[in-house]
């Protein structure tokens, strides 16, 4: 594998404007923070293994007119494969799921996930659940082409990017925690949608 996650992020980021992004924990957080600086407020940096795509799906259900992007991981998706069956049954038309499959739990030093032996094919599992648009890519050109298709698709789209185990350590670190990230994200959704999500108390 020679596909670098950061290079993929740069390609995806260049295609994003009004979308909302939910992403997983680990080194990909700081990478996305730098690869997509224009999407910082529109990205929810979360720390929940197995929750990223379900949360993105919930967001997609709540905002059906808006494109939602889930930046999940092999470890995160394997934690709850059931979401693939739920996506197939619910068929959101505005959800792109990108899975960074580096075949390891990178953030804790790199012990292998279940994809490391090459037997477990996450895209094939997704197709088996009923998702027609579930693909694996190993080149930057294919990744970019699928991002273009996935961001325009009228059905759930899953893209497994077989990336290497490298992580960019020379990038600016995100300083906010999950709670601050939530407020930043919610206020962005409120502004861009013209809605109130976290309004005032009865008495301030």
């Amino acid at each position: 594998m020679s596909l670098a996650r950061y290079d993929c992020m740069l390609k995806l980021a260049a295609r994003l404007r009004d979308e909302l992004v939910i992403l997983s924990l680990g080194a990909s957080v700081d990478e996305w923070y730098n690869a997509a600086p224009h999407m910082r407020e529109a990205s929810l940096f979360q720390q929940q293994l197995g929750c990223v795509t379900p949360q993105a799906f919930g967001l997609a259900i709540g905002l059906p007119h808006r494109r939602i992007v889930s930046l999940d991981t092999d470890g995160g998706l394997l934690f709850n494969l059931g979401i693939l069956a739920t996506l197939a049954n619910e068929w959101p038309r505005n959800l792109l799921v990108v899975v960074w499959d580096n075949e390891c739990y990178q953030s804790i030093g790199g012990p292998p996930t279940h994809t490391h032996l090459g037997r477990v094919d996450l895209a094939a599992i997704a197709r088996g659940c009923g998702l027609r648009e579930a693909h694996t890519v190993t080149t930057l050109e294919d990744f970019d082409a699928h991002c273009e298709r996935g961001l325009a698709a009228a059905e759930p789209y899953l893209l497994v990017a077989k990336v290497d185990r490298s992580a960019r350590r020379d990038v600016k670190r995100k300083h906010s925690d999950g709670r601050e990230d939530k407020y930043i994200f919610v206020r962005h959704v409120e502004r861009s949608e013209g809605i109130v999500i976290m309004g005032p108390s009865e008495h301030n």
């Binding site: 379900p54 919930g58 967001l59 259900i61 709540g62 709850n80 739920t86 994200f185 999500i197």
Partner: peptide, 26 residues
């Protein structure tokens, strides 16, 4: 009310969390 059948309750909790972020109530 739109219902979403889930494969486990943890998944359901996470979906509800995502709905919260959209401004809808789940």
């Amino acid at each position: 009310i739109r219902t979403i059948r889930v494969t486990n309750e943890g998944e359901g909790a996470a979906i509800c969390g995502g709905v919260f972020l959209s401004g809808k109530r789940a």
